[in-house]
């Protein structure tokens, strides 16, 4: 990669829209990483936590809009009731699929044992 040469202009662009919020946002980063199944070191977690904090501070401006939060958005063209007929299509060739698998045996994908706590 070439040398980093920040210019005044782009710094302006980069920071002009950003106004930090006053309230710190609570993030249990280890819990979030666990939910997302990401095995991260403590140092990594700390780094991401700080970045998430910055982004979320910025993103709290979505809360400036009044009214109840919405849970879904419509298709922009208003599509509804898209179904397929109950008709068969050709399935994939098992060998071609298993060729991409890190581990397989006798037509199965193979993984180590599951922890039965999750």
């Amino acid at each position: 990669m070439s040398t980093v040469r920040p210019t005044d202009r782009s710094e302006t662009a980069a920071t002009a829209f950003y106004t930090p919020a006053t309230m710190p946002i609570e993030i249990d980063i280890a819990h979030v990483a666990h939910l997302a199944r990401l095995d991260l070191s403590q140092a990594e977690l700390d780094g991401y936590k700080a970045q998430l904090g910055d982004i979320l501070d910025y993103a709290t401006e979505v809360q400036s809009l009044e009214g109840d939060p919405s849970t879904e958005s419509e298709h922009p063209l208003g599509l509804v009731n898209v179904f397929r007929p109950d008709e068969r299509r050709t399935s994939l060739d098992r060998d071609e699929v298993l060729a991409q698998a890190p581990e397989s045996q006798d037509g199965f994908f193979v993984v180590p044992p599951a922890l039965d706590t999750e």
């Binding site: 997302a36 199944r37 990401l38 095995d39 698998a101 890190p102 993984v111 180590p112 922890l115 999750e118």
Partner: peptide, 22 residues
């Protein structure tokens, strides 16, 4: 790390998934 792509080592499926993704 199960059906395609990168897979990391892991003693359990759980550990394998989390390491693979990291």
């Amino acid at each position: 790390g199960i059906r395609y792509g990168h897979r990391a080592e892991g003693a359990t499926t759980e550990a394998l998934m989390a390491r693979t993704r990291a």
